[in-house]
Design a protein around this nucleic acid. Sequence first.
DNA 1: ATAAGTGTATTAAAACAATTAATACACTTG
DNA 2: CAAGTGTATTAATTGTTTTAATACACTTAT
Lengths: 123, 123
Amino acid sequence: MIILDYQDRRPLYEQITEKFRMLILKGALPPGEKLPSVRQMAMELSINPNTIQRAYMELEQEGLIYPVKGKGNFVAEASRIVKKRRDEFELELSQLVCRGKDMGITEEEIMKIVSEKYQEVSK
Amino acid sequence: MIILDYQDRRPLYEQITEKFRMLILKGALPPGEKLPSVRQMAMELSINPNTIQRAYMELEQEGLIYPVKGKGNFVAEASRIVKKRRDEFELELSQLVCRGKDMGITEEEIMKIVSEKYQEVSK
DNA sequence: ATAAGTGTATTAAAACAATTAATACACTTG
DNA sequence: CAAGTGTATTAATTGTTTTAATACACTTAT
């Protein structure tokens, strides 16, 4: 299911986090699905269970999964995931707007940037 | 002119950078003004000249000062500083808008957040 | 109840990155 | 050319991150 790349400069837990994040966001792992246990996953990859735990903790922070003691880790509901991501986006945008305001940038200028960037065609 | 705080967990060069940044942005150090030389500053603070050099490099990256070999470091023109800061703001905002678009957030939703945050009264 | 599964917490070792210093080089001016 | 200036290279130190070792706690099935 997952392959580690020891050439990759990124830490192991980050490689694991990224791959599960993709699988969940793409829908390959549907809400409610159980993830491999930290021990089973650690066995498969021949690393320490704590490294899997670290990866799962990251995913939990992002609201993508939730743990149940003694049972396992499960993919969160799609609606929860979307909400969490939107909340984070809103927070970042708010902070940025605040910064811009302090710099003396007008609301109209900000709106113009948003509009132009949004209209831009993307591949 | 500057006092180091060894209780402060932040690195020395960061403390120095921050204080000069404030002095420049507040206008206490006007455009064209010469900063203390790296050696003079290092003597005063009893640290290595390279640490001052590091601080000055940060300020240069931010567009706040510019160096002249054999002469010294000088405060940049106000118009340049403003432009640099705006360009950076615009880049960050663009990237954030792009991210939001990918998440499926509409232009109207973004506009709403910007508007609401901008109107907010600040102390 | 107990065994075998699960997540969690603590601690420490190892690897890595950031910070500061030592030192030498290069440019500018008088 | 001497004394000022910024700059580059290297290395020692310090701090942080990453991973592992190990023990604890909860859940379920038998």
